[in-house]
Computed example of a mutant assay.
Amino acid sequence: MSGQVSQVRRWIGLPVVAVVLVVATITVQLTHGGGTYEPLRPADACVERSVTSRATGIDGLTERLVLIGLDEAACTLRTSREALTLQLARQSGDPTTKQVDALREGLLSAVARMKADGSLPKASALVDEVLDSADLNGLLERIIRALPDSVIDRALSTDDVLVRTIDDLDVRALLDDLDDPSALDGRVEKAVTQAVKDSLEARLRDLV
């Protein structure tokens, strides 16, 4: 009988111990400022912020381009980058002309900003990556690889290639049927990356 009483007391004591632990945890949090917690606000898209990329080469270039471009577009639309991507994913119907124009202009503004801060790589720094994925005959590829960097950089400027790429980009198609906010960056980056490679390849062909 005494064993049963002890068992009952243990079962009764468990909720008491749980309550004590919860109260102690809350007390510690309040002591360290937990009672003044406020949710983080999205960054102001109109305030220039540093944008870095973990990728290199053309992938890194286009990643920065898209992130800056989305900030610029969000600023134009008077919202945050996070809110814009969420809106594009949740809205019913096609993207509006205002959204399409804002993103295109944002990407063009990003090119200008990257040119101004000196973060655009020279075209010659991207040639090997372009040739590695291009479908060129062996002789043409060897001729292009043999061109001095100075010749390539005089004939091609990275900002000009990017501007031409963005002008030709089907932005509306990129924004259409977007059901995942996190997919927007990747979708635009993939399209821009491929377009940049195609543009550079075509213009490299014209050099020889």
Rank of each mutant, 00 (worst) to 15 (best):
Q7E: 15
I12N: 05
V16R: 05
V16N: 01
V17G: 08
V17W: 00
V20Y: 03
V20P: 00
L21Y: 00
V23A: 15
A24W: 02
A24F: 05
T25E: 10
Q29W: 07
Q29I: 04
T31P: 00
T31C: 04
G33P: 01
G33R: 00
G33C: 01
G34T: 06
E38R: 14
P39E: 04
P39H: 02
L40T: 12
R41Y: 09
R41Q: 15
A43Y: 03
E48S: 13
R49N: 05
S50C: 05
T52W: 05
S53W: 11
A55T: 11
I58N: 01
D59Q: 06
E63V: 08
L65I: 03
V66L: 10
L67N: 08
D71K: 08
E72H: 15
E72T: 03
C75R: 01
C75M: 00
T76W: 02
L77R: 01
A83E: 13
A83H: 10
L86S: 14
Q87T: 12
Q87Y: 15
S92G: 14
G93Q: 11
T97C: 00
Q99A: 09
Q99T: 09
V100S: 02
V100Y: 01
D101F: 14
A102G: 01
A102C: 00
E105G: 12
G106R: 08
L107C: 07
L107F: 13
L108P: 01
S109K: 11
A110R: 03
A112F: 02
R113I: 13
A116G: 11
L120A: 13
K122T: 10
A123R: 03
L126N: 01
E129D: 04
L131D: 12
D132A: 15
D132C: 01
D132R: 14
S133D: 11
L136K: 07
N137G: 12
N137K: 12
G138Y: 11
I143C: 05
I143V: 14
I144Q: 07
I144P: 10
R145N: 06
V151W: 04
I152L: 12
A155D: 12
S157Y: 09
D159I: 02
D160C: 00
V161C: 05
V161H: 07
V161S: 08
V163S: 12
V163N: 10
I166C: 04
I166V: 12
I166L: 09
L169S: 07
L169I: 13
V171C: 04
R172Q: 14
A173G: 02
L175E: 13
D176W: 13
D176C: 03
D177A: 01
D179L: 03
D179M: 01
P181I: 06
R187W: 04
E189L: 05
E189N: 10
V192Y: 07
V192W: 07
V192T: 13
T193D: 07
T193R: 14
A195V: 02
D198H: 10
S199R: 14
L204C: 11
R205C: 00
R205I: 03
V208H: 12
